[in-house]
């Protein structure tokens, strides 16, 4: 793989994380537990679509495809997002835990990318970081409220944390290309972020009166294009019009 192909793959990975998370959140639009949370979740989804567009546009410069060809005309095995973001909206506890685990990572990742030697990536990260700070504040506050709210809410949050705990490990795995790009100061060195991420998450989980699940086995595959069964359904829905009516202007 040459440098350009490695960079393309890396930028796609970043874009796919945002677009699939945004797609999952957009399913909740109009169905939130209260109007305020409905609006907040839609807002996060909107921010992530904006970030995905910038990243796809940049990837497109390396590859010649436009943002919509990249989002709507690739199949499951070509997506590079982490598995966590494709997990379903089982209930509001799963939505919040998924968001929080992702936001803590997204924050550290963008923070590191602000220093990237690749100017386009650094500029996108700088803009995105402002938004992700707000996302993290929202999801962290809801971790606390629901973890330390009622007995029922605590149980639901602990169940969600147990269900989703096997996914974040993948955040910190690096592909071969990513390692080369990180050495060149272009990609973020995600492997080195794990202790900070874990310390932040442990602090929040403790404050929320929840318990970090035991065991350190984790799911893997998303960054290499091997996904959970959910992604095929997400794409079937998301890509429907572009697939059914190819080559048209919308």
């Amino acid at each position: 793989m040459n440098n350009k192909a490695m960079l393309f793959d890396y930028v796609l990975h970043l874009a796919d994380n945002q677009v699939i998370m945004a797609q999952r959140l957009s399913e909740l639009c109009g169905h939130g537990p209260a109007l305020e949370q409905d609006i907040a979740i839609t807002n996060i989804s909107l921010d992530l679509i904006g970030q995905a567009r910038l990243l796809f546009q940049y990837a497109g410069k390396l590859d010649g495809r436009d943002e919509d060809q990249l989002a709507f005309l690739r199949d499951v095995h070509e997506f590079r997002n982490v598995l966590l973001v494709e997990q379903p909206n089982h209930d509001f506890a799963h939505v919040i835990v998924r968001q929080y685990l992702f936001d803590e990572f997204n924050f550290l990742n963008y923070q590191a990318l602000c220093q990237s030697k690749d100017e386009d990536l650094a500029a996108i990260a700088t803009k995105a970081l402002m938004e992700v700070k707000y996302h993290r504040r929202f999801s962290r506050n809801w971790m606390l409220r629901l973890g330390d709210g009622t007995a029922i809410s605590r149980q639901k949050m602990q169940d969600a944390l147990n269900d989703l705990w096997s996914y974040p490990g993948e955040f910190f795995e690096m592909t071969g290309g990513e390692e080369i790009l990180a050495k060149a100061g272009i990609a973020a060195d995600v492997a080195s972020m794990k202790p900070t991420w874990l310390a932040n998450v442990t602090q929040t989980v403790k404050e929320a009166s929840l318990v970090i699940p035991e065991g350190d086995w984790h799911q893997t595959g998303g960054k290499k294009g091997i996904h959970s069964e959910h992604l095929g359904h997400i794409l079937a829905e998301m890509q429907f019009l572009q697939r059914a009516y190819p080559g048209q202007t919308w």
């Binding site: 957009s26 399913e27 639009c29 109009g30 109007l35 839609t42 807002n43 989804s45």
Partner: peptide, 28 residues
């Protein structure tokens, strides 16, 4: 918000999806 929300996940482009989400959010 519901009849429009029915097409958010199937909006044909990222730009249309963002505009539709923003619109539904305004309605909220």
């Amino acid at each position: 918000m519901l009849p429009e929300g029915n097409w958010v996940t199937r909006a044909p482009t990222l730009k249309r999806k963002a505009i539709l989400l923003a619109k539904i959010q305004d309605e909220g």
